[in-house]
Structure formats: structure tokens, C-alpha cells
Amino acid sequence: MNGVEELIAKAVQPGSRVLDIGCGDGRLLKELVARKQVKPLGLEISLESLQQCIENGVPALQIDIDRGLQQFRDQQFDIAIVKQTLQVVRHPLLVFEEALRVARECLMVFPNFAHWRNRLRLLLGGCMPVTSSLPYEWYNTPNIHLMSVHDFEVFCRQRGVRMLSQNAFGESRLDNLLIALGRDNLGGTGVLVHLSKAPEPGT
């Protein structure tokens, strides 16, 4: 598991019902079953990924998440994972709202478009950034809804969604220094946020 997946594993309660929205080959869920004895379910669209889920022994359903998750009940899951998925879907707002409806909490991971290298590339080079966290050209990128950490914070605030934690991650020493200084939106190539729709305790 990489660093982000370690952080996800830390945030997931043992034995909880976990929905991985856009679960890919299912390896993260497999790891969570091994470490946290979670009750997993993955959602995927690609047949190849769904075959890999089967090979990995991970239960997964072929669902087009862009059409919502109305097949699932409110809070059917304890926690939803939306990892490197929100920016590739056609209807991120719908996926966001549905994730927080079917689960009490949500872990979201997405690339930060406002990372300093992206900013420089756009400002000085005048080109769409192509980096290790955003490795595509404009014409072949699956990332059709890019946002910054800052955008996402505002977005959550406007929707009354509470951010329980925010973990930016970088690649270089400079990235990590900026993150350590609290400048997630500048130093983070990506971010993991832990969200809850429940009001803050005591309010």
C-alpha cells in the first residue's frame, strides 16, 4: 500500500461496512479486509477491473456511478471511499452527494490542481500542466473535473459537510515543507479528506 492507502486504512474502523466507489482492481478493499476485517463492496464500470476484483476475491458490482447510487439505501455503509474518482466522473456533485448519503462518512482522494508546479507551468509556460499526479495531455485526460484543495474546502463548507481531517501529500521535499507549513493548497500534489455529513457533536 502507498502512503495514501495507509492513511485510508488508518481512518477506517475495524469491522465497518466499506463502499469503494470506483474501486479499480479491488486491492485496497482486499487490504482493508486483511487489516481491518471490513465488510467490503466495490463499485466499478470497467469489465477488466471487475475481473481483477473477482481474482482478488473482492465483492464488486458493475454500476455506473454517474447515474447516482439510488440502488443503495441511506447509510447502508459506514464509510465510502472515493479515491481518484471524483475528478473523472461526469457528475462529481451527484457522486459527492450520493457518497455522503449511502455512507455516514466519506474518504475522498483527488489531485490538487493548485499545486505550485501546476501553477508555474500554467503561468510561465502557458500550458496545461502535465505532472506525475496529472500525467495526461488535455486531449486524453480522464480528469475532466479538476479542482484545488481550496475549491474543495469552499465546496464542502457551502454544503454543510464537515471535514474531519485533511491530509495533503506531496512528492518533493519542497512539497512536504509547504504542507508542514500548512500550505496544503500550494504544496500538495493531492489530498485525502475525511468527510462527514453529521453535524459537529454538541451543536
Partner: peptide
């Protein structure tokens, strides 16, 4: 979906 709801191990394609 019904199997998933009752926590059974299910793959659907």
C-alpha cells in the same frame, strides 16, 4: 444488490 444489502459476497457484471 439484494445480496450486497444483506452482506453476502457478490460480484455482478
Amino acid at each position: 444488490l439484494a445480496l450486497a444489502r444483506i452482506g453476502r459476497h457478490v460480484n455482478y457484471v
